[in-house]
């Protein structure tokens, strides 16, 4: 099968959907002429014109608000938010407007919009352009949240997001834009709320999101050399969440580590670990562990920045400790 980069996969998904449905348009900063700083959207303006690929001023609250209104009145806008860190600027549009309108209109209005943005540290972009803030929007009922872990997932999830009648936020890891994966030529969609088991195993479940799936897979390979078989699961969408697959896996392995690149405090890892202990408590043979970004502003210094994110080595150490029964137990 052909291999394409995550950035090409996103580009293809948008182009295919825009050809299929004339109500889809895209707006954001530097999306037309520049094709975004990551060159994801190159070529789209040539095909669809500046009516449907719209360069906006630096005004995130403004153009996101436009998208919410357009979605309410029959269009299917895709908002390009240049950095996930700028979520702070569009929270009112997403949280108080987009997430609530279907409910508050008694189901009369839908908001079929997609907010594409990114996440992920270690690009030396410093504290204001390196955050992974997806936990914030996962907390809000009415928003769906997808976290592609490869080019294949990025394309299938984005196409599903565009066709969804509700607001969907997609977080792409900005370090993965050039990563290649097998992506079929023919059309496919990835349904929301279906986790993917990337690697089966019997000893420990590694639940990982976005680029942390790669971290988990590398850790699983090292662990396999020690005879430890780790199961790697990617929820793919955090809202809706495929809890069943996670719980079934933990019931099988009796151990789990949750890996996510958001901050650890009150984050995704806490939520997933909590669900496991609620629903698989009597199957656990070790405390559920969490690996996440350190609770500090992401440092600009490369050696320091590298310390703040989960790595395969740290995951291996944590998994080994769980298998050997060497975890602290609070007494």
């Amino acid at each position: 099968m052909r291999e394409i980069t995550l950035s090409q996969a996103v580009n293809e998904a948008i182009a295919e959907e825009m050809r299929r449905d004339p109500t889809i348009f895209l707006l954001g900063e530097d999306v037309a002429e520049a094709g975004t700083p990551f060159k994801i959207l190159s070529g789209l303006v040539e095909e669809f014109g500046t009516e449907r690929i719209i360069d906006t001023p630096i005004s995130e609250p403004g153009f996101t608000g436009i998208a919410v209104g357009a979605a309410m009145t029959g269009s299917r806008p895709i908002v390009d938010l240049m950095f996930g860190d700028f979520l702070t600027l569009v929270m009112d549009q997403m949280v108080n407007q987009a997430a609530k309108i279907h409910y508050m209109s008694g189901g009369k209005l839908n908001v079929p919009m997609v907010l594409r943005t990114n996440m992920g540290a270690t690009r030396r972009s410093a504290a204001q352009h390196s955050q992974s803030l997806h936990a914030w929007v996962c907390h809000v009922p009415g928003l769906k949240v997808a976290m592609p872990s490869s080019a294949y997932e990025a394309k299938g999830l984005l196409k599903t997001a565009i066709r969804d009648n509700n607001p969907v936020i997609i977080f792409e890891d900005k370090l993965m834009y050039q990563d290649k994966a097998e992506v079929p030529e023919e059309e496919y969609l990835i349904p929301f709320g279906e986790a993917k088991i990337h690697r089966p195993g019997r000893d420990i479940t590694l639940i990982a999101t976005s680029s942390m799936v790669q971290v988990a897979q590398q850790a699983a390979e090292s662990l396999a050399q020690e005879g430890i078989e780790a199961e790697v699961i990617d929820p793919r969408t955090l809202v809706p969440l495929d809890e069943g697959t996670l719980i079934a896996s933990v019931k099988k392995t009796s151990r789990a580590i949750v890996v996510d690149e958001g901050h650890r405090n009150y984050g995704i890892t806490a939520e997933l670990a909590s669900r496991i202990t609620e629903k698989a408590f009597y199957y656990l043979d070790a405390p559920v562990q969490r690996l996440a970004a350190m609770d500090v502003p992401i440092p600009f210094s490369p050696p320091l920045e590298d310390l703040t994110v989960p790595t395969p080595d740290r995951l291996v150490v944590a998994a080994r400790a769980a298998l050997k029964g060497e975890l602290p137990h609070g007494a």
Binding site: S254, F281, Y282, Y283, L284, D285, A286, H329
Partner: peptide, 11 residues
Amino acid sequence: ARILASPKARR
């Protein structure tokens, strides 16, 4: 004294 054991081990 209270014996410490994992939930699965206890079960």
